[in-house]
Simulated assay, not measured.
Amino acid sequence: MQIQKSFSQQTVGTLFLVATPIGNLQDMSNRAVTTLSEVDVIAAEDTRHTQLLLNHFDIHTKKTALHEHNWQEKAPLLVQDLLAGQSIAQVSDAGLPSISDPGKELVAQAIAAGIPVVPIPGASAGITALIASGLVPQPFYFHGFLPRKKTEQIQEIQTLAVRPETLIFYEAPHRLKATIANFLEVCGPDRQLVLARELTKRYEEFLRGTTAELLAWFEENQARGEFVLMVSGASPADQKLITAGDADQETDTSDLPVAQAVQALVESGQKPNQAIKQVAKDREMNRQEVYKIYHQIEEDHG
């Protein structure tokens, strides 16, 4: 068990996790500005992006880069600096560090080393979008980014779409239409969705409607800017619809030849090994036999 007293006297430095604006610079708190001005070092996801923020608030603190590509080497060095008594502020490009952004690795290492970790709260895109969405705000389930590949994304959506909580996702604009199409495929046309675009900025916009309505909107409009995608929690009827769809998907392969049955499951979102295992189980066949049939491997009779 570990007890942290954030503001007691100590011989080591403090790691501050500082929220930065998600768009509107007026959302920067006085405490955040003071903290960034007083620490020894700012660990930034992108030092060039952070420099723009620092310039606006006339902050001249030294910066260092800490991101997904260098944290394995950099985080231990920062922990050593903290143990030596330096104070460090960690920031992401926007919002809260660690929430679909780099940060959690340094936090975990600092805690393991007995270093105080102090949050400086501020804007978070997911929560900001949720409170204005019109969907049930609690309970909610924050997921962040979905897998990029279609089969993996559909499989993930099938798992998440039966949850009763409001679901919160982040998605890149160029992938948003395909993602909504996948939600329609899994959830049907009537699930309630909300898209929050360019939060806190001049062109902030909320799009509220069904999966079918939002997909139709994308047929005539191009997504621009940063988006938060929110999906209403599954009602009992929604859960039955998705479960029934999964059951139909499984029984659809019963009359197919072995190789085609495996391929159908793969196309529905399963990985090849999972599909082979399921077909072997359903047909009471040896898994290796199904594997050979699917991959057209002939036994070597010498």
Rank of each mutant, 00 (worst) to 15 (best):
Q138G: 02
S37Q: 14
K5D: 14
A65P: 06
A84V: 12
M28S: 05
A223P: 15
I154V: 13
R283D: 01
Q86K: 15
Q72K: 12
M230H: 04
S8M: 12
P119W: 08
Q109I: 07
H174R: 06
V290E: 01
T128K: 05
I59Y: 02
F218S: 09
V91C: 12
G144E: 04
L53Q: 06
F206K: 00
R175T: 07
V107W: 06
E289Q: 11
E38Q: 15
I42A: 08
E284M: 04
I276D: 00
L195D: 01
E299L: 10
Q90R: 10
N221F: 00
A259K: 15
E156V: 13
T11S: 14
P121W: 14
P119R: 12
K74H: 07
L77H: 12
V186G: 07
I157K: 03
R163I: 06
L78A: 08
D27R: 11
G85P: 11
V279G: 03
A110D: 02
R287G: 03
S254R: 10
I276Q: 04
G114F: 06
K177R: 13
S98Y: 00
L15W: 13
A178G: 05
I131Y: 01
E250I: 10
V18A: 15
Q90D: 08
A237Q: 15
L82E: 09
Q9R: 13
A261K: 06
S232W: 01
I115M: 11
Y291G: 07
F57W: 07
A275S: 05
T14F: 05
K201S: 02
T200N: 03
F169R: 02
E73H: 12
K271D: 01
G225Q: 00
D248M: 11
G225H: 00
H174P: 02
E226G: 05
Q72M: 10
K240F: 09
